[in-house]
Design a protein around this nucleic acid. Sequence first.
DNA 1: GTATTTTTTTGATATGGATCAAAGCCGCGT
DNA 2: ACGCGGCTTTGATCCATATCAAAAAAATAC
Lengths: 257, 257
Amino acid sequence: MAILNELSEFRRPIAINLANRPTPSNCEDCGARHNGLCEALTEDELAFLARSAQRITLAPGTVFVEEGEKAAYFYNINHGNVRLFKSLPDGRRQITGFSGPGHFLGLAAGENNAFSAEAMDSVKLCRFSRASLMAVFEELPVLERKLLGVAMHELVLAQQQMLLLGRKTAIERIASFLLSWAVRLEMCPAGGLPAANSVLKLPLSRTDLADYLGLTIETVSRSLSQLKRDGMIDIPNIHEIILLRPRTLSEIAEAAV
Amino acid sequence: MAILNELSEFRRPIAINLANRPTPSNCEDCGARHNGLCEALTEDELAFLARSAQRITLAPGTVFVEEGEKAAYFYNINHGNVRLFKSLPDGRRQITGFSGPGHFLGLAAGENNAFSAEAMDSVKLCRFSRASLMAVFEELPVLERKLLGVAMHELVLAQQQMLLLGRKTAIERIASFLLSWAVRLEMCPAGGLPAANSVLKLPLSRTDLADYLGLTIETVSRSLSQLKRDGMIDIPNIHEIILLRPRTLSEIAEAAV
DNA sequence: GTATTTTTTTGATATGGATCAAAGCCGCGT
DNA sequence: ACGCGGCTTTGATCCATATCAAAAAAATAC
């Protein structure tokens, strides 16, 4: 991962962000509140973690984890979004997920990375060496349990995605995606549906969408246009979608009979 | 999960099988060696675990985990095979994975099961209540680390499967599957390829294969026939495939250019 | 503000895999 | 051995989505 050398990197250890802790406040970069994964950690535990962390800023498009390379680091994202993907030698790409503020990254078994990770915008994150994380585990077994929870949640998402990729039609995939993105943005109270006319911000290109949903950009575009024609959504601009009828979208997504 | 009442169940706690421990010997049911996930546990640790386990035998076709139901148990499979799947209301099914001897099952985040599990043949397993497993964690933090390893490995497989479902052609899916099944059966030394002319036992119907690979049974059958015509494999009977040219199969699977 | 490039949408056509249909094949019970 | 029912394979056709192409819109540069 020679590319890491090009990064603006602060070697001085600073407090890492495991959910915008210590005070659950708004993000210093964008003002939004990023709920994270390790809220249960105490000040002392965070201070312990901080001793082995480096804070790094990545330019958009930077591939900072490369599939097949030695898995040397774990990451905790503070700000920005990351796409995780696998590629075939002929260029076909499958995005396996997205990571955002508060998320852990690098949960790969084995010696080498199972996927690549690329900054979608300007990304700030904390980096740990694998070895130092192992040392942290010795002192902080609770972190291991946290990570188990994270991994299990990732597995649930992966299984949903397999159902989507293996068995859903293009329209169903788009509808499923819109709703799952609303969940991701915490627009769904208690795991329910987002409110009618919710505005969904999509910091994704159509290409990302296609590579995430196993479609082509043309099919993504056509499916969105069709949902718009049918009055399910409105598309004021490329990166915003208004969910006019979330209930019906949900029925499409789950193929309710 | 009312179906559990129909099971032949021994309530007396007995030694669970976390990798055919304590002595890594051959399976008492089928004679084969089942490598498992918790080989590092000591006798004492195993004894501790055993106190909260129940041994259960399932008939083929028994659905013992149901998607959406309350996730009450963890399972450790001793013998037999299990398919894990998600379904849509109209009957479309996606198999998300298979579990066999030594595997853990029930690694789902949240209150409810994210998938269903069904015995493919006669299955023997050990069952823990979720609560008792949590208690075990307190005494055996090492188990948590083991499970984290398991979950991470599952994630790697899930990501591979997403690439397969989202971006590979039918032939590539079949080739990928054959090789991954060979890995599963430990026919691949050091993560390499299986030997030429290896005999692959497939305890799966074509329907299972189709639902795992996101295809129809007809396409599965046609793709296998084509690989046979091309001299890649031989199919002496429905449940056995001979890998005549694993290297070429691998090139097909990974879409080498 | 205008030119240039990139991304997105829309249209026309092609195709891989699905669907519909029928013929083997195999296991099982009698 | 025979007949039956459920898999599996093969064949014919169809269709959802890919591919190819071009216009429209948005982003970027000048």
